[in-house]
Design a protein around this nucleic acid. Structure first.
Length: 289
DNA sequence: CTTACGGCCTGGGTGC
DNA sequence: TGCACCCAGGCCGTAA
């Protein structure tokens, strides 16, 4: 599943081949993950890619219009769970579930393949970009310790939910949330406001360290993630808890556990990440009839 | 305002 | 071969 390290890897791949390329044509398959499919068909041809940006899990392909107009557009791509981008020869076999084809002026094409179609594509004006992406939190790789403390330590939500909340920080998903909490020795159910100063510091370091290492290893290929060159990542080999329930914790030997926290599957070591005191929520007695 | 939670989207994998 | 079911991440509506 593409989270920050995977999207960053894709972005770096696209930066190798897209800037300077002119888009010649657009062909679409299923379009229910595209905000306005006809806008893509209408506006993309004739534009030139100027740069590739990543904001959290979002990719932005900046476009210059062919006629030199100042109006700048960007193609937003969110890979969802199963989105893949390929820059490839049009003669290459087309994988199933490929729904967007952009022909490029170097003879290749950019393809978007998405089994689940949980991804998203949209053409955004500068104003749209602010509206759509303005609510995102800070980049976890850039956030300073003090900012991290302020944003996370003040909140009463479960730390797992806070790490996943894109308006707190952008780009962390289930894998890197679980891995970061394990490294920082914090239970996913603990409340942000209950984290000690030391825990906040450890978590800040853990998040950044893990994201950096994951980018270095080109992300985690869990289900079907590949980068824009079709290569798998290697960080899944370093996972300590994600998908390892029932296996031994590499730090203490206890068995990794699985539980639902904040509505998401969570993996953690019950010894290294001690459970917080349960909040006293009156156990709802079953309504009897 | 904040937080919690259920439901929805889709289809591959699994188990019977 | 079929078929029901689960699950993934993000988001949204609703409730407290």
């Amino acid at each position: 599943m593409p989270e920050l390290p995977e999207v960053e890897t894709v972005a770096r791949g696209l930066r190798q081949s897209l800037p300077g390329r002119r888009i010649l044509g657009v062909r679409l398959g299923k379009t229910d993950f595209i905000d306005d499919p006809s806008a893509l068909e209408l506006l993309l041809p004739g534009t030139t890619v100027s740069r590739i940006r990543r904001l959290g899990k979002n990719l932005l392909v900046d476009l210059q219009s062919g006629d030199g107009e100042a109006e700048s557009l960007a193609l937003l791509i969110h890979l969802g769970m199963t989105g893949q981008i390929a820059i490839i020869s049009p003669d290459a076999p087309v994988p199933k579930h490929t729904h967007v084809f952009l022909s490029l002026d170097d003879g290749r094409e950019m393809r978007y393949t998405d089994v689940r179609r949980f991804g998203r594509m949209a053409i955004l004006s500068t104003a749209d970009q602010e509206k759509e992406l303005g609510g995102l939190g800070l980049e976890p790789l850039d956030i300073l310790l003090d900012e991290f403390r302020a944003r996370v330590g003040s909140r009463n939500g479960r730390i797992k939910a806070l790490l996943l909340d894109q308006s707190v920080m952008r780009g962390i998903g289930n894998i890197y949330a679980d891995e970061s909490l394990w490294r920082a020795k914090i239970h996913p159910r603990k409340l942000g406001s209950k984290l000690t100063s030391e825990e906040l510091k450890r978590l800040h370091r853990a998040v950044q360290g893990i994201l950096r290492e994951a980018i270095r290893l080109r992300g985690s290929s869990i289900s079907d993630y590949v980068d824009s060159g079709g290569r798998k990542g290697k960080y899944q080999l370093r996972h300590r808890v994600y998908g390892r329930d029932g296996k031994k914790c590499s730090r203490c030997g206890s068995l990794i556990r699985w539980a639902t926290v904040a509505g998401r599957s969570s993996h953690f070591c019950p010894r290294c990440q001690p459970a917080p005191r349960e909040r006293k929520t009156a156990k709802k007695s079953k309504p009897r009839r």
